[in-house]
Amino acid sequence: MGAGKTTVGRTVARRLHYPFFDSDHELEAHCGVRIPVIFEVEGEAGFRDREAAMIRELAARQGIVLATGGGAVLRAENREVLKARGTVVYLRASPHDLWLRTRHDRNRPLLQTEDPKGKLEALYAERDPLYREVADFIIETGKPSVAQLANMVLMQLEMAGFPIDPPQPASTPAGESEPPAQDPNP
């Protein structure tokens, strides 16, 4: 949490001309309540069940950019779905950087403790090996801007053979007019 998955994911999606989805935001929209309320009512296990179902649903779509919640990798089924259905990018940040980015955010139930920095360090120790297990690429978030991080993601994808420039409609030579669009429902 706090690594920039949503912000960078949105930027990458825009550059690829793909729809963007954040599994946490989609889950909140589906349930009609914020994640802290789901945690409060159903506990972390209930939230993780809902999260896994949402990830399965979103990962079944073609041609999207998906940002998952930071704890999505805790479940083997999520790791398997993500690895099988897409290219996984791990935006890695140090626990200290994560703490600086999230310390004032009250919408993060796992950090509502006496020692949020210690909690982030424990979460990092548990999750980092899982992120590495599923990741096709690891991008260090450190100091780069969102645009620089998005460029790094796109460069990694391009080097792996991912088509970065979506096909553009054929242009009409100068001086010629395009034929009128056909009405699909005459």
Results as ranks from 00 to 15, higher is better:
residue 72 A to K: 07
residue 141 T to H: 03
residue 117 K to N: 02
residue 11 T to M: 14
residue 38 I to V: 15
residue 177 S to N: 09
residue 94 S to I: 03
residue 135 A to H: 02
residue 29 A to I: 03
residue 50 R to Q: 12
residue 130 L to M: 12
residue 164 I to D: 00
residue 103 R to I: 05
residue 115 D to Q: 06
residue 84 A to I: 02
residue 14 R to V: 06
residue 42 E to N: 09
residue 69 G to D: 08
residue 119 K to R: 15
residue 119 K to V: 09
residue 125 A to H: 10
residue 42 E to Q: 12
residue 12 V to F: 01
residue 15 R to I: 01
residue 66 L to A: 00
residue 35 I to Y: 03
residue 59 A to E: 05
residue 170 A to R: 11
residue 31 C to F: 05
residue 178 E to R: 14
residue 146 V to F: 01
residue 139 I to S: 00
residue 179 P to C: 06
residue 130 L to P: 04
residue 116 P to F: 04
residue 27 L to K: 01
residue 160 A to V: 04
residue 134 V to S: 12
residue 75 R to Y: 07
residue 136 D to C: 12
residue 1 M to W: 04
residue 174 A to N: 02
residue 52 A to D: 06
residue 168 Q to W: 00
residue 74 L to K: 12
residue 86 G to S: 07
residue 52 A to N: 07
residue 55 I to H: 03
residue 33 V to L: 03
residue 78 N to E: 06
residue 172 T to D: 00
residue 183 D to N: 13
residue 52 A to R: 14
residue 75 R to L: 08
residue 132 R to E: 14
residue 93 A to W: 05
residue 172 T to Q: 08
residue 53 A to G: 11
residue 173 P to V: 07
residue 147 A to F: 06
residue 156 Q to S: 15
residue 68 T to H: 02
residue 86 G to T: 01
residue 52 A to W: 03
residue 79 R to P: 00
residue 95 P to H: 08
residue 12 V to G: 01
residue 153 V to K: 07
residue 174 A to T: 10
residue 106 R to M: 02
residue 17 H to K: 11
residue 74 L to M: 15
residue 176 E to G: 00
residue 77 E to R: 06
residue 164 I to M: 11
residue 78 N to C: 11
residue 45 A to P: 01
residue 32 G to K: 02
residue 118 G to S: 09
residue 161 G to D: 08
residue 135 A to M: 13
residue 182 Q to I: 15
residue 54 M to W: 00
residue 127 R to I: 10
residue 16 L to M: 04
residue 4 G to V: 14
residue 172 T to H: 03
residue 132 R to G: 12
residue 36 P to Y: 11
residue 88 V to M: 04
residue 109 P to V: 04
residue 179 P to L: 15
residue 155 M to E: 14
residue 60 A to M: 09
residue 6 T to L: 12
residue 186 P to G: 14
residue 161 G to Y: 07
residue 73 V to N: 04
residue 112 Q to S: 14
residue 24 D to P: 03
residue 144 P to I: 14
residue 54 M to I: 11
residue 98 L to G: 08
residue 102 T to L: 15
residue 170 A to F: 11
residue 153 V to R: 00
residue 90 Y to M: 09
residue 76 A to K: 12
residue 19 P to I: 01
residue 81 V to A: 15
residue 162 F to T: 01
residue 121 E to D: 10
residue 95 P to E: 10
residue 40 E to N: 11
residue 143 K to E: 14
residue 83 K to D: 07
residue 11 T to K: 12
residue 3 A to V: 15
residue 159 M to E: 14
residue 4 G to T: 10
residue 82 L to Q: 05
residue 108 R to I: 15
residue 35 I to D: 03
residue 115 D to V: 02
residue 36 P to F: 13
residue 6 T to G: 13
residue 78 N to H: 06
residue 156 Q to F: 07
residue 136 D to G: 13
residue 102 T to R: 07
residue 97 D to E: 14
residue 161 G to P: 02
residue 91 L to D: 01
residue 68 T to S: 05
residue 65 V to M: 02
residue 111 L to K: 05
residue 26 E to G: 06
residue 184 P to S: 10
